[in-house]
């Protein structure tokens, strides 16, 4: 009788273990296919904390070598997620970025402007150039008095290797259809016309940048234009110039939200946790590939007509 009872419990244990195994397999598949391993929320609360750390690019930030890169695609998803969550009443953006791609910076700034909730930018060490563009889209900017901010300007400088390849008796065979198709390749000097064309495009992006900051900060284009020399400002200077609203840190950001929304702030941290496939893709991306191929060749292999504009 007792033996029969033991067999019964063994059968129950085996059935439970098998079903648990399938449950784990399915849970893993769900996490993988629905991207649940990408963004992890730490804690539960009413204010989302989204980190914008490193170079702002449209993609990237997943691989072992991309720790200092933030992807506008992922940040946009976090913003949309926090905005759609009714338990989240406000979003704090903790910025530590020297800027990055103009397009990626504007993508994040636009996503912030669409948010229906109160948004605060908390500039830590650096919130310059594209980093400042992002900050300017929030309702309120707080920075440390020594934070590096501003730097409203556009840069697209690159190394010209034409002298070097000439010294090594290497010839650049120019094969293009369309006379400006290889404008900006590092193997030949820019012609005066190309330089003017290039500069015009940079000026246009600079203008967009100024317009956006002026609109976001409630300043005139002329006011921002005077500040937009590309120079960076310390937090204390930026406060005087109207680029920052308050000097301080996280405590000040929380105090501002508590006063503004009449709530007790509890932070939910949005952490980008790369999935296995992210790490794999990031590790195999262009930059990592260049590590193996040689840094020198990576620098010289600037793709024709690929204008890299940094804000």
């Amino acid at each position: 009788m007792e033996k029969k009872s033991n067999v019964k419990w063994v059968i129950i244990a085996v059935v439970l273990v098998i079903l648990l195994f399938f449950a784990f397999i399915f849970a893993g598949i769900v996490a993988l296919f629905f991207g649940l391993s990408e963004a992890e929320r730490i804690g539960t609360g009413n204010v989302a904390l989204i980190h914008i750390n490193g170079l702002i690019l449209t993609e990237g930030g997943g691989g072992f070598f991309d720790e200092d890169v933030v992807s506008s695609t992922k940040i946009k998803l976090d913003i949309e997620d926090a905005d759609a969550d009714p338990t989240i009443k406000a979003i704090i953006f903790e910025i530590n970025s020297p800027g990055g791609s103009a397009v990626a910076s504007e993508e994040i700034a636009n996503a912030i402007k669409k948010v229906d909730k109160t948004t605060v930018a908390l500039i830590r060490e650096t919130g310059a150039s594209g980093g400042y563009w992002v900050a300017s889209a929030t309702d309120y900017i707080i920075a440390n008095r020594m934070s590096v901010t501003g730097s409203i300007g556009v840069i697209a400088s690159y190394l010209d290797f034409s002298g070097l390849i000439k010294d090594y008796n290497v010839t650049y065979e120019r094969l293009v259809s369309g006379k400006y198709k290889d404008m900006g390749v590092p193997f030949r000097e820019l012609t005066p016309t190309e330089r003017i064309l290039f500069q015009k495009k940079l000026d246009l992006i600079h203008e967009y940048f100024i317009e956006e900051v002026a609109k976001n900060r409630g300043l005139t284009n002329e006011q921002v234009n005077d500040l937009a020399t590309g120079i960076f400002y310390l937090g204390s200077e930026a406060k005087e110039l109207g680029l920052v609203d308050e000097l301080g840190g996280e405590e000040e950001a929380i105090a501002y939200l508590e006063k503004e929304l009449n709530i007790t702030v509890e932070i939910v941290e949005y952490v980008e946790k790369p999935s296995f496939f992210d790490i794999l893709a990031g590790t195999l991306n262009e930059k990592s590939f260049f590590v193996g191929k040689g840094i020198g060749s990576a620098l010289t292999e600037k793709k024709a007509n690929k204008l890299e504009v940094w804000a």
């Binding site: 439970l16 079903l19 648990l20 449950a23 784990f24 399915f26 849970a27 893993g28 769900v30 996490a31 649940l36 992890e40 929320r41 539960t44 759609a84 969550d85 009714p86 338990t87």
Partner: peptide, 26 residues
């Protein structure tokens, strides 16, 4: 306790801990 265990982590990540009304609108 046993079979729901693997799903608990996923649901905690994607579901807000809020009232029924807020969860519904989410």
């Amino acid at each position: 306790f046993v079979l729901f265990f693997p799903f608990r982590g996923i649901l905690t990540k994607i579901m807000p801990t809020a009232s029924f009304k807020e969860t519904y609108s989410y």
